[in-house]
Write a protein that binds this DNA or RNA. Structure first.
Ligand code: MN
Ligand code: MN
Ligand code: ZN
Ligand code: ZN
Lengths: 136, 136
DNA sequence: TTACTAAATTGTAATCATTACAATTTAACA
DNA sequence: TGTTAAATTGTAATGATTACAATTTAGTAA
């Protein structure tokens, strides 16, 4: 059975071609794309796709914790397959978002505050390696 | 000399009443307000204040690292006086943003990636203590 | 396989935070 | 006190996201 069909089945999500291609796109593109980037790319091969459907699919996948949304860039959400806890770096110059593998020791310590923690996001911002080189 | 005047002077920022009241508001309100919350409150005592001016003041203060902007809630920026590194908790139920004092050991480790780090944000999301109690 | 139905998709319009811009005002300095 | 570059103001534009109603479809059961 198809890998992505299985993911949706396991989460009791109705299987639709639109959800499958959005999920596949996020699985194969680790660029933390925006909804519009996902839409624009998929629209080429699937002209009947609606942007609203992309938003709906992302919301559904997010609710089931299959993907996560990143608020790192401020003016638009970015999406990421939920493959274990990791942090992110955002380049203020080129806008790229890349993974940063850092252990986070804060989860345990948070218990004392009494809030119920459901998500942890570590966002680092600055100028990426590539942009730094170009500036010389 | 007034405390806030001094802050602007030290940063070579032209002193205007609008910048002063925005800065004072953020100093006295640790609620991580949005631009609109700041504007709506100040507008009452300063009817000639423009929302654009609030945005401009926030941008200027942010550029000089006197304040920081938080992208934690996704659909709007929140602002915070820059009083040392600290993390934030966002309640998905009531929308509140509160400080979380956690040491972050990740700054040193980031050097290996080669990116130039200018900001570090730790965002925790879930349901706050108060909302948890109300749900029982 | 077919018919049914709740849910998903689609396209368009609305919302809302933020930014752009041009006219007016003002802080800083000589 | 006069000058001027910068700041403020009000309005219009932008752009991501959401609301909504009409249409289509996935899943189920006869
Ligand atoms: Mn990632
Ligand atoms: Mn804070
Ligand atoms: Zn870059
Ligand atoms: Zn709450």
């Amino acid at each position: 059975m198809d890998k992505y069909v299985k993911v949706l089945k396991n989460n009791h999500i109705k299987i639709t071609p639109q959800r499958l291609i959005v999920l596949e796109y996020l699985d194969k593109n680790c660029t933390h794309p925006t909804a519009d980037e996902i839409y624009s790319y998929l629209k080429k091969k699937h002209p009947s796709l609606s942007k609203t459907t992309v938003y709906n699919a992302l919301e559904t996948l997010n609710k089931h914790r299959i993907i996560q949304s990143l608020t790192i860039s401020g003016n638009e959400l970015r999406y990421d397959l939920n493959h274990g806890m990791h942090h992110h770096f955002y380049c203020k110059n080129c806008g790229c978002v890349v993974d940063v593998e850092l252990k986070c020791s804060n989860i345990e310590k948070m218990k004392k505050y009494g809030h119920q923690i459901e998500e942890i996001h570590g966002y680092l911002k600055g100028i990426c390696k590539t942009c730094l080189k170009k500036r010389r």
